[in-house]
Simulated scan of single mutants.
Amino acid sequence: MIQLKEYTIPFVGLKQGLHQFEYDIDNTFFEHFEYDEFNAAAVKVDLEFNKKTTMLELQLNITGTVNVNCDLTNEPFNLPIENEFLLVVKFGDEYNDENEELLILPHGEYEVNIQQYIYELIVLALPHKRVHPGVEDGTLDSDILEKLDELSPKEKTIENNNEETDPRWDKLKNLLNDK
């Protein structure tokens, strides 16, 4: 993967202490990763870069919205996202990123690229099931929702013990009785 220059931080020239970086992420960032789940993205990344004598601490905070399609109706909507991540960078003999919260850079390295961490932080901020807010509160008017309502079972029968049952199950019960 080609590293994007704007997400590479040359830490050798920085003084010890806290440094602030800001990034605005849009769809062109995700095109680089060949990720096309978003219709549009407007995410702001705030990075607090704390340079210490033996290590670096990177606190990433993201806020913004991504335009995605609803999993139920396929209607596009803006989904607000928010996430944070702390990355500790230490120095060792060889590059090692096996631990998700610790990055080891070889001695003599002078810069760190954070594009992969930003990408993962945004993608992991998404919920597993993306539901349009209009579906949850009942205000969305969609052809798909009308079709789902039309196809859902409506009538229920009441048995002797006053429990409601699904009519499809009643048909299956009749098969047992027809022996």
Rank of each mutant, 00 (worst) to 15 (best):
P127W: 14
F38A: 08
L121T: 01
G134L: 02
F49W: 07
E82T: 12
N83C: 00
E159Y: 12
K156C: 11
N39R: 10
E146H: 08
I81N: 03
T53H: 11
Y119M: 06
E120S: 07
H32E: 12
L79P: 11
P167V: 13
E75D: 14
S152F: 13
L102S: 00
A42C: 00
V89K: 07
N61H: 14
E57K: 12
Q115I: 00
H132R: 11
H32L: 02
Y23W: 14
G138S: 06
L121G: 00
L87G: 01
K90D: 05
I144N: 05
Y117D: 15
E94A: 11
Y110F: 10
F91G: 01
T53W: 04
Y35M: 06
H19I: 04
H19L: 06
F11P: 05
I122A: 09
D71H: 05
F77L: 09
H128V: 13
D149M: 06
E159S: 13
L145D: 04
D26S: 13
P106G: 01
D178K: 13
P106D: 01
I158S: 13
I104D: 00
N96M: 04
V12S: 13
L124A: 06
R130F: 01
F29Q: 06
I25W: 04
L151N: 15
L145A: 10
L148H: 08
L4C: 04
P80G: 09
L79H: 12
E98Y: 06
D170Q: 14
R130C: 05
L79W: 11
T73G: 03
H132S: 08
A40T: 06
N162A: 14
N160D: 15
E37A: 12
L126E: 10
I114E: 07
E150R: 13
D143N: 07
V66K: 11
F77W: 10
I144C: 00
I144V: 13
Q115S: 13
E150V: 02
A41R: 06
S142N: 15
E146I: 03
L60H: 03
Q3M: 13
N74E: 05
I81V: 14
N174M: 07
E100L: 07
Q115L: 01
I104F: 02
I122V: 15
K52P: 03
E22F: 03
D178T: 09
L60E: 01
T53Q: 12
D46F: 01
F49T: 02
